[in-house]
Simulated assay, not measured.
Amino acid sequence: MNRTILEVDHLEKRFGPIRALSDVSFAVDEGEIFGIIGPDGAGKTTLLRILAGVLRPDAGSIRALGWDLLRELERVRPLLGYMPQNFSLYGDLTVRENLAFFSTMYGTFDPAWMERLLRFAHLERFLDRRAAQLSGGMQKKLALIGAMIHRPRLLLLDEPTTGVDPVSRRELWDLLSGFHLQGVTILVTTPYLDEAERCTRVALMHRGRMLAVDAPDRLRASLGHPVIEIIARPIMRVHAVLADHPGVLEAVVLGDRIRLVVRAGSLSPVDVESMVRTIPGVTVQEARWAVPRLEEVFAHLMRREGTDG
C-alpha cells in the first residue's frame, strides 16, 4: 500500500465576505494522479496556491511529504513542482533561456535531464524560439517541463489544459502520464470531467467544498439513480416531454440522444419508449439502460448540496 504524501485537513480560506474554501479535507497517496474537478469559482486555484505556498489559509493544516507545509515550507518547496493556471514563463526569453533560468533558480542545473525533458515534450526543435512566440499548447508544455526541471516528488498543476486545442490537451496528458510512470505524484485541477477518467482518484469540488472523493468508477456507481438513454426524433420535442415527467430528475441532450436520470423504480426503458411513441410525429430508434457519467454524478451532488443548503 502506498503511503500518504499529502494530507489536507479542514482547510478554510476567505477573501472578505467570500468563503473560497470551506472545511476542505482530503489525502493523496504516493504515486497517484489525483484530480480536483470543478467549474470556475469552485476554489480550485485558491487551493492549489495554498498547497504551493503562495497563499496561507485562514484555518486548517497541511502535511506534505512528511512535513508541516505551513510551518516548514522551505523544507517542502524543493520537493514540489507548481504550474499555475496563467502563463508563468518569461515571454522575451527563449525556450532554452527559460529552462536555464528555472534550473538556476532551483539550483539543480542538469543538462542531460533538461535535454530529456525537451525530447519528451517534443520541444527540442524550438530551443531558440522566444516563449511568447510559441503556440498555446507549446507554452503549456514548456511551463510543465519547467515545473519538472528540479525533479519534484509532488507536482501541482492548476488547469494545465485550459485554453488549448484537443490535440494539445492529449499531448499534455501524455506528458503527465510519462511523468507519473517515472514515480511523480500528480495533483491536477481541471474543469473538464472527461479528464477525470485519467486520474486514479477524483475530488468533485463546488463552491469551495469537496462534494465527493473517490475513484471515477466508484463515483459513477454512487449515483443511486438509474440512467436511461433514448434515441428519438425530433429530439427537442421529445426532450421537452420527458423533462416534465415527475420521475425524471435530469434530462440532457447529448449528441443524437437524450440521457435521463430517473428516480429509482419510477421508469424503465420500456416505459420511456411507450411514452414517447404517444407523441404525434415522433419516431423512436431505441431506449435502453445506460452507465452513469461523472457529469450526472456531479449534477446530482450539486442538487443535493443545494437542497441541504
Rank of each mutant, 00 (worst) to 15 (best):
L65N: 02
E159P: 04
R209E: 13
E7F: 00
S22N: 15
H180W: 09
D40S: 12
I36C: 04
T200M: 05
P152A: 07
V227W: 06
L175A: 06
P234S: 10
W289D: 11
R263V: 10
I5R: 01
S103Q: 14
G309A: 14
A147I: 05
D174F: 10
G265H: 10
R71M: 04
D110I: 09
T162G: 14
R63L: 08
T189K: 00
A64F: 00
R220F: 03
E32F: 02
R207H: 11
G16E: 14
V261L: 05
E7G: 00
E250G: 01
E286N: 12
V184T: 14
R116L: 11
R96T: 13
C199A: 06
G137D: 09
T200P: 02
T161H: 00
L154N: 01
R129A: 12
L156K: 00
L155N: 03
S103H: 09
L70C: 06
D244F: 01
R170H: 07
S266L: 13
V227E: 06
D158V: 13
P78H: 12
M302K: 12
A221I: 09
H122T: 13
L260P: 03
V282Q: 12
G53N: 02
D128N: 15
I231D: 14
R129Q: 14
R169C: 01
V54D: 04
S168R: 04
G265L: 05
I50P: 04
S135E: 10
V272P: 06
F15L: 06
L144W: 04
P216N: 07
V248M: 08
R257N: 05
R119Q: 15
Y90G: 08
Y192H: 14
V238L: 07
L181C: 11
P57C: 09
E296W: 05
L267F: 08
M1G: 12
T46P: 12
D308A: 15
G81T: 03
E305C: 02
R129I: 12
T185N: 02
G137T: 09
V297Y: 05
L21T: 02
G224Y: 12
E197C: 00
T108R: 15
V188L: 01
L301I: 07
G91R: 10
L181Q: 15
G137M: 07
A20C: 09
D29R: 01
S266P: 13
T45N: 06
N98C: 13
T4V: 08
S266I: 12
E32V: 02
T189W: 00
A212S: 08
G247V: 06
G183F: 08
A240K: 13
M205P: 03
T108W: 03
E305T: 07
V95S: 01
R19I: 11
